[in-house]
Amino acid sequence: MRRYVPVAVLVFAVYIVFSGSVSPYDLVIGALLAVGVSLAASRYLVRDPSKACSIGRFARLVWYALYYLTVAEFRAHRKVIGIILSRDMPVRPAIVRVPYRARGEYTVVASANSITNTPGTVVVDIDTDKSLFYVHWIYAEGLDPETAYENILKDFETRLSRVFE
């Protein structure tokens, strides 16, 4: 039972926000959709119901989103915009190995998405056996995996581990 609740709540919330109305018609359709989608999809989406129901984890996800969308993005945008607009375009491009510590699939996907969404770093490939991201880095501060981890991933992964791990 607890497996189905988080998915249903999420679907219902998205439906209500998207339709922008709380008329009885929308409430009924939203509830029906929420029940149907969560019955069909929960077993693929939720592996550990106690994690998915945790309010604390959800709060940390919101906090991560706020931090990521303001501080991290602002820093990265300023850097890449600086490179684009400068006269000689100082780039030091490299594809580096970045080892990740996370075990959960959600953490790995969210980390990779965060890295790619910040300008200046793009995940090119992933090696799940060796737990490595291959990241194209526009201004490589260093080539060894530890420097790359410290500069690119550490910040995101530690915060996301508190949400998903």
Binding site: L69, E73, H77, V80, I81, I84, M89, V91, P93, T116, N117, T118, P119, G120, V122, V124, H136, I138
Partner: peptide, 17 residues
């Protein structure tokens, strides 16, 4: 930018910002 990968960075600038 001079090659495909560097241009990809320019494209991600436009995704968020």
């Amino acid at each position: 930018f001079r090659n495909f990968y560097l241009r990809l960075h320019a494209a991600t600038v436009s995704t968020i910002g």
